[in-house]
Design a binder for these strands. Structure first.
Lengths: 343, 343
DNA sequence: CTGAAAGCGCTTACAG
DNA sequence: CTGAAAGCGCTTACAG
């Protein structure tokens, strides 16, 4: 950087006031009651000098970093980057940009009991934290809760009182399966997008069972397969279902990514969708409209999740709200060709 | 935060040394020649007190924030989050995590001549910047170049001397079209993933033309359509091509996302892939293996792009290398069913 | 091999 | 309505 650093002192000198006044004006401190004329002089001087306050100095003195952290899950179980996280992040960016707050992104590193994001909080790089898809037994999380560090979870932890934003996975899944039942299906298989230790997957399985129960259909473990995030796992799970020679005419897959692999496997085995098997999926990614056939899917408002989590965290940091609020976002079933048998 | 702040002073007192020594030990300052015994005492004291240095104080004093910025393009032209950015980010995170550096993510806001990321540099929140997919006429960028602010571009700017990491789009595209020609095709249509003002799209178009020229095929503007990032745009472009009633048996689409919409449109119009039209795509997303039929695609090493850009930026910040280095990453054609006619 | 002292650039009681 | 002074928690010449 060749640029010579302009400080508040320089602005003060130019405006003929003290650095104190510069700080009051630039931070809009109402209690200071700065006269309009002085205010304007300071503002002009700051602009002429292209003054930009030093973030580190401000953070050190005020104790506020004006930065929040977003922690993504380890990339390991996810075979490739999950577009979902980026959609959440976009919503989050919208909110932080409006508030002049910055976003620090980190991911949990596997293996080691990760204290990287703990340090993020402890060395005061951030004022608050948004945690995505975490493990239930997270040690670092427990410590931060003890410290009353401002935090919002994406997804819920069972029996946890931490603030969170989550989709209503259970009722969304129930709606998906209800739809299949309405189409006349009684033998409905299930392929999950994650192991059942992940609360999101758990809830979707619950919704599946809720629907079966509501329609007096007996739950059959033999029709259930546990996928793992990728299209590849969906391909394998669907193949396994077909090989089992069990009868099913409906199939609920708990993510679009996995469903893509499922459609590929069904096509490869000559199983026609929706005529032989009707498929309903979850997420409603943009691509769901362009699979062959287009996927019926439960739409999840990812960007909205990011926005809500961001607002909640900022309010938490400012002390405007108390921790423990838990938001549940509505889902919406979008019906396309994959689930509706042609006449 | 209820946690009482532990400072270097506290550690010093406990270890029976001065804060200076604590700083020397914790920062591994070789010139200080701290005795092994003292070093151990300080380390122990720091651990017992769970000392975590204050990032703001360190940044203020040292002038280094230990943070780098990643600037994503505005979300507007992209209809949804682009998974590609997340893959680059993962590679980047790998590198920064190894170096105890943090990653700040921001996006360019459209409309206004954006100086948000300029401020990121000027208010010293970051030591360096990685810019993704920027506009050619970026004003903020020019200012940062003038300031000699450490910076790496993802993608190249024509005639620019800024450090960059980019895919070899041109030769990748040529290989894709060469492959179609080898399959016997002479009428090869093109659907781009972005307007031709984007350098990445431009280069892929060049590669397409290179291949045609090399095989004495005349370039026909009537076989070219300009898509725009989304599967939807691919659907529209393919439909437009089909409606034009022009003959083509080969089709090169410059991204998988767009190709998904193309496959959907071809299927809808009863055009069989690869028998009626052979399709080759670009990116080789994980999903390319599971489209119907699976897509032949040019594989782009996104994670590697992130890693290389990260390393380059860190070296730039440390003054280990001079600006202006431009890395070109190799691509690889992955052949699947969409381009090879069945016997 | 180690310490005393200055100072990075702000904000914030406090005083007037 | 505005300013002088202290201090946030480090790092870094400098001195010994």
């Amino acid at each position: 950087m060749t640029r010579v650093r302009v400080t508040a002192k320089d602005v003060a000198r130019r405006a003929g006031v003290s650095p104190t006044t510069v700080s009051y004006v630039l931070n809009n401190v109402k209690e200071a009651n700065i006269s309009e004329e002085t205010r304007q002089r300071v503002l002009d001087a700051a602009e002429e000098l292209e003054y930009v306050p030093d973030a580190a100095a401000r953070a050190l003195r005020s104790g506020r970093t004006q930065t929040i952290g977003l922690i993504l899950p380890p990339s390991q179980p996810y075979p490739q980057a999950n577009p979902i996280h980026l959609r959440v992040m976009e919503g989050l960016l919208e909110v932080v940009q409006q508030s002049e707050v910055r976003l620090l992104v980190d991911s949990v590193r596997e293996a080691q009991n990760d204290d990287a994001y703990l340090n993020l909080a402890w060395n005061k790089r951030i004022d608050g934290l948004i945690l995505s898809d975490l493990r239930i037994d997270d040690q670092a999380l427990a410590k931060l809760v003890d410290d009353k560090f401002p935090m919002v979870l994406l997804g819920r932890l069972p029996r946890s009182k931490v603030s969170s934003v989550e989709f209503d996975n259970r009722s969304g899944a129930q709606a998906a399966v209800d739809h299949l039942v309405e189409q006349g299906h009684r033998h409905i298989a299930l392929i999950t997008h994650a192991p059942s230790t992940i609360t999101g997957a758990q809830e979707r399985i619950r919704g599946y069972r809720d629907s079966l129960t509501a329609h007096s259909i007996i739950y059959d473990e033999g029709l259930v397969r546990y996928g793992g995030y990728s299209a590849e796992s969906g391909f394998a799970a669907a193949t396994s279902l077909l090989m089992s020679e069990r009868t099913f005419t409906g199939l609920f897959v708990t993510s679009d990514e996995v469903a893509l692999g499922v459609l590929s496997a069904l096509h490869k085995h000559g199983v026609s969708v929706p005529n032989d098997v009707a498929v309903v999926s979850f997420d409603d990614n943009p691509m769901a409209r362009f699979t062959i056939p287009p996927l019926t899917s439960v739409r999840l408002p990812f960007e909205e999740m990011g926005r809500q989590a961001g607002r909640m965290l900022l309010d938490l940091i400012l002390g405007k709200i108390k921790p423990g609020r838990q938001i549940l976002l509505e889902t919406e079933l979008v019906i396309r060709e994959s689930s509706v048998r042609k006449k």
